[in-house]
């Protein structure tokens, strides 16, 4: 299995955030508030290598938490996660970019953050630049780029890492049609190589085009896991499988 989640829960609470010394001191005097909430609750699934899976659900359903857990950015409070293979996470394009560095400098910085060696980066450099279509602006500071150019550059670096598992969070929403097509082609190419894809998108057509399977999260719980067409049909109708089930149970 490429990714296995077993009864994974992730809890957030008020006490689990950066606080000031004052709060530590008052915390000893007053009993702590009970304010735990589950971003994910006992989620179990497994994804085989080469599967393409979409995660759908409304805002706050736990989609981003799930991707962060797979990317090993954070760790579960309960349950176990297993992931095999090199992972590249496109959670927010250009997270490692700095506006005052040039495009070229940002390529090197981002490539090293994603785990590429110097030699490999030098080797991939011209490919990255030409894929991005930035052209002669590559020597200019990033703050002079448009949002679209920024995204093109970030995507170009990330797809060249050549991971076994690619995690994408809502990144195809920006950029013009042409570049979106270019990105989709790259992802299809990736899919054909038998790599695993896990993505979050609100664009139903992209999800249906890219993925075979979908996971539907609602309030931190996995409510449906199945072929993308069925899940998307249920999700777009906002018919909660549990609602159907309880309706059936209630009917005589």
């Amino acid at each position: 299995m490429a990714i296995t989640f077993h009864e994974v829960s992730k809890v957030y609470s008020h006490s689990k955030s950066r606080i000031l010394l004052r709060n530590y001191l008052t915390g000893w005097l007053r009993p702590p508030r009970e304010d735990r909430f589950y971003a994910l609750k006992k989620v179990s699934f497994s994804i085989a290598p080469g599967e393409t899976v979409a995660v759908v659900g409304s805002n706050g359903a736990g989609k981003s938490t799930l991707l962060s857990l797979v990317a090993q950015l954070c760790f579960p409070d309960e349950g176990t996660i297993r992931a095999n293979g090199r992972i590249a996470a496109l959670l927010e394009l250009g997270s490692g970019f700095h506006p005052d560095l040039s495009g070229a400098e940002n390529i090197f910085l981002n490539a090293s953050l994603l785990g590429l060696s110097r030699a490999r980066t030098v080797q991939l450099y011209s490919g990255i630049v030409s894929f991005s279509g930035i052209g002669e602006f590559i020597g200019q500071p990033l703050r002079t780029y448009s949002a679209g150019m920024n995204m093109r550059l970030a995507f170009s670096v990330a797809v060249n890492v050549d991971p076994d598992i690619l995690i994408i969070d809502e990144v195809l929403a920006v950029g013009d049609r042409n570049f979106q097509k270019q990105c989709l082609e790259k992802i299809f190419e990736f899919k054909e190589k038998g790599k695993t894809l896990l993505c979050v998108s609100h664009a139903a057509e992209i999800v249906q085009e890219l993925c075979e399977r979908a996971l539907w999260l609602d309030a931190g719980e996995l409510v449906m896991d199945g072929p993308v067409k069925e899940v998307m049909a249920a999700y777009s109708g906002r018919v909660h499988p549990r609602a159907i089930r309880s309706a059936i149970e209630r009917s005589p």
Binding site: H98, G115, L116
Partner: peptide, 28 residues
């Protein structure tokens, strides 16, 4: 689980550090 934080990163520490140093230097 807790002890093994960033497990899968198999990159080039020297390359990463040199890029971070260059970034700090240029920005300053």
């Amino acid at each position: 689980m807790a002890s093994a934080a960033i497990t899968d990163w198999k990159g080039d520490y020297g390359f990463l550090l040199s890029n971070l140093i260059k970034r700090d230097f240029k920005i300053r």
